[in-house]
Design a protein around this nucleic acid. Structure first.
Length: 589
RNA sequence: GGACCAUUAGCUCAGCUGGAUAGAGCGCUGCCCUCCGAAGGCAGAGGCCAGAGGUUCGAAUCCUCUAUGGUCCGCCA
């Protein structure tokens, strides 16, 4: 496709793949290959071992069987034609039928120019094609400050949202406020106790209330608002008002927690708004019309044997029709909704808002809800809207190598604030993304602040800062080094193997974005940045022994070429950190 | 009893949705600075990818079973 128009390539891997496909088409036309072959499985990727070349394709191997030909024959015919392209300097058949391509240095050198021209938009992809995707994350109960578990979910969800945005999706970041259940009654009662306390009364916090200090100020605020109006009054008199007052206060707290982490939501969606508005009923009516709602009795769970188990007839959702293990109750035996019912309505609403794709980010303890939610969305959307649920595993906190879980503010758990106050939002975010979401994460307060290669945050930031330092030095030396000038530099001077290595790494960025977005795995960006930073540090260190590799040289033209490489690396690092929500550092202190 | 997730170097973890001789950091071993680019650098050792089957040109990756660890399991949130 003419996406390239002779300019430097956007994604060199896709570029070469296109070349391969058109070449194969020509071979089909010429009768060298049978018609009707499926080219989809053909890939172009960097070989594991750089000695094999710059790029490898499996084309011959995946076509061999359907074409009823030997892979090596296809590979050799293809190699001959590919070698005619100016971008390809050699095409060798290897192993069982791999085709190893070596690309002209100019192809790699052009990458730097592209990066300098496009800036941090380099790698911005078309994968999403403007599809609307809803990413729901955090969604913590409005009963207290966010803790470490929420922090990981918040960072993950936010980075995922940014990643998808970068990959070309139209992203909505959403928070579901669980303000409809019994837990907000507990909150209201706890705040009422603090309110009494604010009036000088001695209070005890019985089992089933929230004793955290963070409610003291809420009790005082309530006193400031209503004075002594609720003293010596029954619950029926104040509960509703205190509940609304308290959840508002808690959401203020949560929003400010999120802000401290640099997370901003587009939509806060209230569970309560689903009640009494006919929306739960409407969602269930939709399921009912599909024959998925019935009255029935569930089997007791085996092996668990609750003592007070007795069979009861309930309204059930036939989630087994959509992949769940058992059907799920939507209505309690007393006629009230289960927690699942508003969840269904909420996702029904998301489907109706026209999203092409839904993503929920839950803590690992919600693993049991994955199948039923997927079943619900599948049923509600008629299978047209995919729901991906990402679970974030536990975070284990360490200090001085010792595990701990105390908190000054909340009394019971370590809060998001505890973490951000100690290490800052940038470090918090990056470290939370140095593990894939479904693996446990160790978070050591001392190690994350260490300045060494062991610490990826520092290592990546340092690479960016080093480039900033080069630019400062260049300015002192009177070398013009703005991006436009650098983009026009003679990049053919970047012919050393170490320099080409960095350029190849930069060329992988668009491809990495695509893969990470397709799998909903933002951590891949963090690992990529660590590798890219490593390449830059490696080049820098080589400058110790090989003076020609230093970025600032005697003549301006050479310097500008070298600086162009450094600067484009910094741009990609900045773009990557942007996705992770981390600010790139201009200097290390 | 069941579901989901994990299991890769001594340790902590990647592995680009099936590719070639499985990678990184730490640790270990051995080299390398009389500040001008060592808050380090280079090289090396270290692996039955938990185990057993299967799928195919080809498996750490997909399927089945087993083992170990974690999370969860009517109406709670």
């Amino acid at each position: 496709m003419g996406r390239n128009e002779g300019n430097a390539p956007m994604n060199i891997f896709a570029e070469i793949r296109e070349l391969i496909l058109t070449t194969l088409d020509q071979m089909v036309t010429a009768g060298d290959l049978p018609e009707g072959l499926n080219f989809d499985p053909i890939t172009t990727e960097p070989p594991r071992d750089a000695a094999h070349g710059d790029m490898a394709t499996n084309a011959a191997m995946v076509l061999a069987k359907p074409a009823k030909m030997k892979p090596r024959d296809i590979a050799e015919a293809l190699a001959g034609k590919l070698a005619e392209d100016a971008r390809i300097t050699s095409a060798d058949v290897a192993g069982p039928g791999f085709l190893n391509l070596r690309l002209a240095p100019g192809v790699w050198q052009a990458i730097a120019k592209t990066v300098l021209t496009e800036g941090t938009d380099f790698g911005r992809g078309s994968l999403g094609q403007g599809q609307k995707v809803n990413v729901e994350y955090v969604s913590a109960n409005p009963t207290g400050p966010l803790h470490v578990g929420h922090t990981r979910g918040a960072v993950f969800g936010d980075a995922l949202a940014s990643l998808l945005d970068f990959a070309g999706f139209d992203v909505t970041r959403e928070y579901y406020i669980n303000d409809g259940g019994a837990q907000v009654d507990v909150l209201a009662r706890s705040v009422y106790l603090r309110y009494l306390e604010a009036h000088g009364q001695e209070v005890a916090f019985p089992e089933g209330t929230y004793p955290g200090d963070y409610l003291i100020e809420v009790g005082e605020a309530l006193k400031a608002k209503v004075g002594d109006a609720y003293l010596d009054k029954g619950e029926q008199f104040w509960l509703e008002d205190v509940r609304a007052f308290s959840t508002d206060k808690m959401m203020e707290l949560i929003r400010s927690d999120l802000k401290a982490l640099g997370v901003e939501m587009d939509v806060f969606y209230s569970e309560k708004s689903l009640y009494g508005t006919g929306r739960i009923e409407a969602a269930l009516e939709d399921l009912k019309s599909k024959g998925l709602i019935y009255e029935g009795v569930l089997e007791p769970p085996k092996g668990k044997k609750p003592e007070d188990w007795e069979p009861r007839e309930q309204t059930l959702f036939k989630s087994t029709e959509h992949g769940d293990d058992v059907d799920r109750p939507v209505m309690k035996s007393d006629g009230g909704w289960t927690y699942f019912a508003p969840d269904i309505a909420y996702h029904y609403d998301k489907v109706q808002r026209g999203f092409d794709m839904l993503i929920d980010v839950f803590g690992a303890d919600h693993g049991g809800y994955v199948k039923r939610m997927k079943a619900a969305v599948s049923a509600l959307s008629g299978g047209t809207v995919p729901l991906d649920i990402k679970l974030t595993q536990l975070v284990k906190l360490f200090k001085n190598g010792e595990p701990f879980k105390m908190s000054k503010r909340a009394g019971t758990f370590v809060t998001l604030r505890d973490v951000v106050d100690q290490v800052g939002p940038d470090v918090t975010r990056f470290v939370m993304l140095t593990r894939k979401n479904d693996a446990m994460l160790d978070f050591d307060f001392d190690k994350v602040l260490e300045q060494s290669r062991e610490n990826p945050v520092f290592y990546v930031q340092y690479a960016h800062a080093r480039v900033a330092s080069v630019l400062r030095k260049a300015a002192e030396a009177g070398i013009t080094a703005d991006d436009a000038t650098l983009a026009a530099a003679d990049l053919s001077l970047l012919d050393h193997e170490s320099e080409l290595g960095v350029l190849r790494k930069l060329a992988e960025w668009p491809r990495l974005v695509e893969t990470a977005a397709r799998t909903n795995e933002p951590h891949r960006a963090a690992f990529y940045l660590y590798e890219l930073a490593g390449d830059l540090h490696g080049l820098w260190n080589k400058g110790n022994e090989v003076p020609e590799l230093r970025f600032i040289q005697d003549d301006a033209a050479t310097s500008q070429a070298k600086i162009a490489l450094a600067r484009s690396t910094a741009i990609v690092i900045a773009a990557g950190l942007g996705i992770l929500g981390v600010n790139p550092a201009e200097e290390m202190r």
